[in-house]
Design a protein around this nucleic acid. Sequence first.
DNA 1: GCAAGTTGCTTCCAAAAAGTAAGTAACTTG
DNA 2: CAAGTTACTTACTTTTTGGAAGCAACTTGC
Lengths: 117, 117
Amino acid sequence: MEHPLTRCARFEKASELMGKRWTGLILRILLAGPRRFGELTDEIGSISERVLSERLKELEAEGVVSRHVDAGPPIRVAYQLTEKGQALWKVVDELGRWAERWVDVKPASAARKRKSA
Amino acid sequence: MEHPLTRCARFEKASELMGKRWTGLILRILLAGPRRFGELTDEIGSISERVLSERLKELEAEGVVSRHVDAGPPIRVAYQLTEKGQALWKVVDELGRWAERWVDVKPASAARKRKSA
DNA sequence: GCAAGTTGCTTCCAAAAAGTAAGTAACTTG
DNA sequence: CAAGTTACTTACTTTTTGGAAGCAACTTGC
C-alpha cells in the first residue's frame, strides 16, 4: 500500500497520460460510445488529424482504447474504451462537475458567480 | 443546464488546464498543503524551474492557486490552493484511485495483473 | 472503367511548448 | 564582503503541436 499524498509513480504515469493535450476530450467522447476517426476529429473540432492519430496510438499502447477495423466493404475503423479506459469515467465525470461549477466560459463581463451556480 | 456528454466549453477549458504537463502533479502536492517554490521543484523532481514558474502563473491566473509572499527576513513565497483549486481534490483523487488500480509501474515482466489488483 | 469522392491516416514544414543551463535580485551567513 | 540560498528569468536547444497536403484503399457517378 502506498501513501496517498507522497510521490507516487502510478499517479505520475496517470497524470502524464491525462496531462497530454486532447486526451481528456477524447476520453469524454469515447465514454459516450465508440467513435470512428473522422467522428472524433469532427466532435473535437480543433484537433489536427496528426495529433489525434498520435494520441489514439498512445492510448491504445496504454491499453485505454482499442482499435477495431471493420473491413466493410466500406472500410471503417472504430475506437472504443477498454475496461481500463472505461474506468476513467469517474475522473472525467469529476472534472466535468468541477468545470460546471467553477469554469466560466466567458471570462469578461457578467463574471459574477457565487455558490448559487 | 447542459448535457453531460455533448461538447461543452467548460469541460474543454477545464481539460485544457488539467491537460497541461505537470498540472496534475502540482495540484496533488498542493492538495496536501501550501508549498514554496523550491519545495515544489524538489517534490516533483524532474520539472524545470522555468516550466514550474510558468505553470504556477497559469494556475494563479485561473484562480486555482494563490501566491503569498512572506517578506521574511528570510523571504519566502508560498503557493496554496484557492477554494476553486481545492475543489479539484475529487478529480485528483479519482485519478489516483484509477492509477492505483490500473497503472502498472514496471511495464516489462511480471505484468500479469487481474481484477485482484 | 475511370475520374471524383470518402475514410483513415502519414508526411512535411512552421510555430509553440518544454528542457537545460546559466544569470539575477534580494537577502543571510561566515 | 565573498559565498550561499531562494525565487525566479533569460537565452538557447529539443520536442510537441498545428496546418496543409499527400496517399492507399475502397465507393459512387456516369
